[in-house]
Protein backbone atom coordinates (compact mmCIF):
# COMPACT_ATOMS: atom_id res chain seq x y z
CA UNK A 1 0.00 0.00 0.00
CA UNK A 2 2.97 2.28 0.57
CA UNK A 3 5.29 3.88 -1.88
CA UNK A 4 2.75 5.29 -4.26
CA UNK A 5 2.52 8.68 -2.61
CA UNK A 6 6.20 8.97 -1.76
CA UNK A 7 7.61 8.98 -5.28
CA UNK A 8 4.74 10.69 -7.00
CA UNK A 9 5.93 12.05 -10.30
CA UNK A 10 3.82 13.42 -13.12
CA UNK A 11 4.45 10.37 -15.31
CA UNK A 12 3.57 7.99 -12.49
CA UNK A 13 0.39 9.89 -11.70
CA UNK A 14 -0.49 9.95 -15.37
CA UNK A 15 0.09 6.24 -15.71
CA UNK A 16 -2.03 5.60 -12.62
CA UNK A 17 -4.87 7.73 -13.95
CA UNK A 18 -4.69 6.10 -17.37
CA UNK A 19 -4.78 2.60 -15.95
CA UNK A 20 -7.54 3.50 -13.49
CA UNK A 21 -9.72 4.66 -16.38
CA UNK A 22 -9.07 1.39 -18.24
CA UNK A 23 -9.83 -0.71 -15.16
CA UNK A 24 -13.00 1.21 -14.41
CA UNK A 25 -14.12 0.66 -18.00
CA UNK A 26 -13.44 -3.06 -17.54
CA UNK A 27 -15.44 -2.99 -14.30
CA UNK A 28 -18.38 -1.38 -16.09
CA UNK A 29 -18.13 -3.99 -18.84
CA UNK A 30 -18.27 -6.94 -16.46
CA UNK A 31 -20.53 -5.50 -13.77
CA UNK A 32 -22.82 -3.15 -15.65
CA UNK A 33 -23.86 0.32 -14.63
CA UNK A 34 -25.75 0.81 -11.38
CA UNK A 35 -25.42 3.91 -9.23
CA UNK A 36 -25.50 1.89 -5.99
CA UNK A 37 -22.56 -0.23 -7.18
CA UNK A 38 -20.40 2.80 -7.87
CA UNK A 39 -18.48 2.81 -4.54
CA UNK A 40 -17.66 -0.90 -4.92
CA UNK A 41 -16.57 -0.33 -8.51
CA UNK A 42 -14.32 2.55 -7.51
CA UNK A 43 -12.80 0.55 -4.66
CA UNK A 44 -12.14 -2.40 -6.98
CA UNK A 45 -10.63 -0.02 -9.54
CA UNK A 46 -8.35 1.43 -6.87
CA UNK A 47 -7.22 -2.05 -5.79
CA UNK A 48 -6.60 -3.10 -9.39
CA UNK A 49 -4.65 0.09 -10.12
CA UNK A 50 -2.54 -0.42 -7.02
CA UNK A 51 -1.79 -4.02 -7.99
CA UNK A 52 -1.00 -2.99 -11.55
CA UNK A 53 1.42 -0.25 -10.45
CA UNK A 54 3.10 -2.64 -8.01
CA UNK A 55 3.49 -5.43 -10.55
CA UNK A 56 4.28 -3.27 -13.57
CA UNK A 57 5.86 0.06 -12.63
CA UNK A 58 5.21 2.71 -15.28
CA UNK A 59 8.09 3.29 -17.66
CA UNK A 60 7.04 6.63 -19.08
CA UNK A 61 6.12 5.16 -22.42
CA UNK A 62 3.22 6.97 -24.03
CA UNK A 63 0.42 5.35 -25.93
CA UNK A 64 -0.30 6.84 -29.35
CA UNK A 65 -3.87 5.98 -30.17
CA UNK A 66 -3.69 6.37 -33.92
CA UNK A 67 -0.74 4.02 -34.14
CA UNK A 68 -2.43 1.67 -31.66
CA UNK A 69 -5.44 1.42 -33.97
CA UNK A 70 -3.11 0.58 -36.86
CA UNK A 71 -1.44 -2.10 -34.72
CA UNK A 72 -4.82 -3.52 -33.70
CA UNK A 73 -5.93 -3.69 -37.32
CA UNK A 74 -2.69 -5.39 -38.34
CA UNK A 75 -3.01 -7.84 -35.44
CA UNK A 76 -6.66 -8.70 -36.13
CA UNK A 77 -5.95 -9.21 -39.80
CA UNK A 78 -3.01 -11.41 -38.85
CA UNK A 79 -5.10 -13.49 -36.42
CA UNK A 80 -7.74 -14.11 -39.06
CA UNK A 81 -5.07 -15.07 -41.59
CA UNK A 82 -3.51 -17.35 -38.96
CA UNK A 83 -6.80 -19.13 -38.43
CA UNK A 84 -7.36 -19.56 -42.17
CA UNK A 85 -3.77 -20.73 -42.59
CA UNK A 86 -4.12 -23.46 -39.98
CA UNK A 87 -7.56 -24.45 -41.27
CA UNK A 88 -6.34 -24.71 -44.85
CA UNK A 89 -3.36 -26.87 -43.92
CA UNK A 90 -5.39 -29.08 -41.58
CA UNK A 91 -8.06 -29.75 -44.19
CA UNK A 92 -5.81 -30.10 -47.22
CA UNK A 93 -5.22 -33.61 -48.46
CA UNK A 94 -1.45 -33.64 -47.98
CA UNK A 95 -1.37 -31.27 -44.93
CA UNK A 96 1.03 -28.96 -46.81
CA UNK A 97 3.40 -28.66 -43.87
CA UNK A 98 7.04 -27.69 -44.01
CA UNK A 99 7.69 -27.15 -40.31
CA UNK A 100 10.89 -25.90 -38.81
CA UNK A 101 12.53 -23.18 -36.78
CA UNK A 102 13.19 -19.65 -37.96
CA UNK A 103 14.96 -16.86 -36.10
CA UNK A 104 13.98 -13.21 -36.22
CA UNK A 105 15.91 -10.29 -34.72
CA UNK A 106 14.16 -8.33 -31.97
CA UNK A 107 14.54 -4.58 -31.75
CA UNK A 108 12.61 -4.20 -28.50
CA UNK A 109 14.85 -4.44 -25.43
CA UNK A 110 14.12 -7.13 -22.82
CA UNK A 111 11.19 -6.12 -20.67
CA UNK A 112 7.45 -5.72 -20.60
CA UNK A 113 7.14 -4.30 -24.09
CA UNK A 114 9.04 -7.24 -25.54
CA UNK A 115 6.88 -9.71 -23.60
CA UNK A 116 3.73 -8.06 -24.90
CA UNK A 117 5.07 -8.11 -28.43
CA UNK A 118 5.87 -11.84 -28.16
CA UNK A 119 2.27 -12.44 -27.06
CA UNK A 120 1.04 -10.67 -30.20
CA UNK A 121 3.56 -12.62 -32.27
CA UNK A 122 2.21 -15.93 -30.97
CA UNK A 123 -1.05 -15.21 -32.78
CA UNK A 124 0.64 -14.30 -36.05
CA UNK A 125 -0.01 -16.55 -39.04
CA UNK A 126 2.20 -19.61 -39.33
CA UNK A 127 4.66 -18.83 -36.54
CA UNK A 128 4.91 -19.34 -32.80
CA UNK A 129 7.61 -17.88 -30.52
CA UNK A 130 9.20 -20.71 -28.54
CA UNK A 131 12.22 -18.97 -27.06
CA UNK A 132 14.54 -16.01 -26.97
CA UNK A 133 18.32 -16.10 -27.26
CA UNK A 134 19.72 -12.70 -26.53
CA UNK A 135 18.03 -10.39 -29.00
CA UNK A 136 16.88 -13.13 -31.32
CA UNK A 137 13.39 -14.56 -31.29
CA UNK A 138 13.20 -18.25 -32.06
CA UNK A 139 10.01 -19.13 -33.91
CA UNK A 140 8.49 -22.43 -34.83
CA UNK A 141 6.84 -22.21 -38.24
CA UNK A 142 4.33 -24.37 -40.03
CA UNK A 143 6.06 -23.51 -43.29
CA UNK A 144 9.58 -22.17 -43.13
CA UNK A 145 9.23 -20.78 -46.66
CA UNK A 146 6.68 -18.19 -45.45
CA UNK A 147 7.94 -14.62 -44.94
CA UNK A 148 7.48 -14.82 -41.18
CA UNK A 149 10.39 -12.60 -40.21
CA UNK A 150 9.34 -9.70 -42.40
CA UNK A 151 5.76 -9.94 -41.14
CA UNK A 152 6.95 -9.73 -37.54
CA UNK A 153 9.34 -6.89 -38.34
CA UNK A 154 6.42 -4.90 -39.74
CA UNK A 155 4.36 -5.70 -36.64
CA UNK A 156 7.22 -4.70 -34.38
CA UNK A 157 7.52 -1.33 -36.16
CA UNK A 158 3.82 -0.72 -35.58
CA UNK A 159 4.18 -1.85 -31.98
CA UNK A 160 7.07 0.54 -31.27
CA UNK A 161 5.18 3.36 -32.94
CA UNK A 162 2.06 2.67 -30.85
CA UNK A 163 3.68 2.29 -27.45
CA UNK A 164 6.59 4.66 -27.87
CA UNK A 165 10.25 4.14 -27.32
CA UNK A 166 11.18 3.34 -23.79
Amino acid sequence: MSGIESDETPSRARAAAFRAVLFFAFWLAISGWKATDLPVGLAATAAATWASLALMPPTGARVRFGALAALAAHFLRGSVLAGFDVARRALSRDLDLNPGFVTAPLRLPPGNARNAFCALASLAPGSLPVGIDGDTLLLHCLDVAQPVASYLAAQETLFIRALGDE
Partner: peptide, 25 residues
Protein backbone atom coordinates in the same frame (compact mmCIF):
# COMPACT_ATOMS: atom_id res chain seq x y z
CA UNK B 1 9.85 -16.28 -18.44
CA UNK B 2 8.37 -13.37 -20.33
CA UNK B 3 4.99 -14.92 -21.07
CA UNK B 4 4.44 -15.63 -17.37
CA UNK B 5 5.41 -12.08 -16.40
CA UNK B 6 3.05 -10.65 -19.00
CA UNK B 7 0.26 -12.84 -17.69
CA UNK B 8 0.93 -11.80 -14.11
CA UNK B 9 1.08 -8.10 -14.90
CA UNK B 10 -2.06 -7.95 -17.00
CA UNK B 11 -4.21 -10.71 -15.55
CA UNK B 12 -3.89 -9.94 -11.85
CA UNK B 13 -5.46 -6.44 -11.87
CA UNK B 14 -8.27 -7.72 -14.08
CA UNK B 15 -8.66 -10.73 -11.78
CA UNK B 16 -9.06 -8.42 -8.80
CA UNK B 17 -11.86 -6.61 -10.64
CA UNK B 18 -13.53 -9.91 -11.58
CA UNK B 19 -13.17 -11.20 -8.00
CA UNK B 20 -14.73 -8.11 -6.45
CA UNK B 21 -17.50 -8.21 -9.06
CA UNK B 22 -18.32 -11.86 -8.32
CA UNK B 23 -18.29 -11.14 -4.60
CA UNK B 24 -20.55 -8.13 -4.96
CA UNK B 25 -23.12 -9.64 -7.31
Amino acid sequence: QGALLLLEQTLVPLGILVGVHIFWV
